[in-house]
Design a protein around this nucleic acid. Structure first.
Length: 250
DNA sequence: CCAGACGTTGTT
DNA sequence: GTCTGG
DNA sequence: CCAGACGTTGTT
DNA sequence: GTCTGG
């Protein structure tokens, strides 16, 4: 699974350039000339999905800000919305086509979430050690996600929300995430366009939901201060390597 | 049919 | 809105 | 996911 | 053991 991520790259123009292949004509120019997104987007060295942060996701018709934790469009009241969204940070890729909460979104409302990396915990000798998992160089991971738009019938408020698809762990992630053996869907660059295209056949979508290969994926242990949710964990230290003598290598 | 759930995770 | 359990 | 709490009373 | 907050 994937319950916390890093998102430091907040320049709308750079994101637009990175994802220009999936953006309709004109979007790159709009975003590049509009710095407003930078005011809206904080820098997250570490952010928990349970805080339901607003993050930029890319759908077939452009970029939108969406809150992490998918609220299905059919939810009738805020109470159920608040309850469900804590359980929809992730969507199991193997079952998303059947689940009432995801069946519409996985068919026609797929999107991409760029992240600088994500965090998972490794259990060793009765303790939990957080790891930061990140791509090579300056690139970002592109996570395969679903989105939905929910309207509060009572207030008229509309909330755009998303969920991160998960797959079984690859061999690297199985060592780190040794108690859950899941990982987020990391899409190869050449799959991005088809992922967001609402007309991509279901069979093709299913084929895309596979564990990423280990190539290009790096991971190192980070501070156990991340285990304490009440502390301010959104600091540059969150992604810095910490060496624990007792931890076996990956 | 109706009522109620609708999600993730875990079991070192 | 759609599925499951009874 | 993790750490930490885990109760009662009153209340237009 | 199970729920809540972050």
């Amino acid at each position: 699974m994937c319950y916390s991520i890093a998102f430091m790259e907040k320049r709308a123009g750079k994101l637009a350039a990175r994802y220009q292949g999936i953006l309709p004509p004109g979007w790159k120019e709009q975003l590049a000339g509009n710095e407003a997104g930078d005011d809206v987007l904080p820098t997250y060295y570490f952010v928990s999905g349970f805080a339901h942060p607003n993050l930029p996701v890319f759908g077939h018709d452009g970029m939108m800000l969406a809150s992490w934790g998918l609220i299905p469009h059919w939810v009738k009241d805020r109470e159920l919305a608040e309850k469900l969204r804590n359980g929809t940070l992730n969507a199991v890729g193997e079952t998303a086509f059947e689940k009432p909460s995801f069946r519409k979104s996985i068919r026609s409302q797929r999107c991409l979430l760029p992240v600088d990396g994500f965090f998972e915990w490794r259990a060793h000798d009765g303790k939990k050690y957080p790891y930061f998992i990140y791509p090579d160089g300056d690139d970002m991971f592109t996570l395969g996600c679903l989105y939905d738009l929910w309207t509060d019938k009572h207030t008229g408020e509309m909330i755009q929300t998303f969920s991160i698809i998960t797959t079984p762990a690859n061999s690297l992630m199985a060592i780190i995430h040794n108690q859950k053996n899941r990982m987020p869907l990391i899409l190869p660059r050449d799959a991005e366009t088809a992922w967001v295209d609402p007309d991509t056949p279901h069979a093709t979508v299913k084929d895309m939901i596979q564990p990423a290969g280990e190539h290009g994926i790096n991971a190192h242990p980070v501070s156990r201060k991340l285990n304490y949710a009440r502390q301010d964990r959104n600091t540059p230290e969150a992604i810095e390597r910490v060496t624990y003598d007792e931890l076996p290598d990956l």
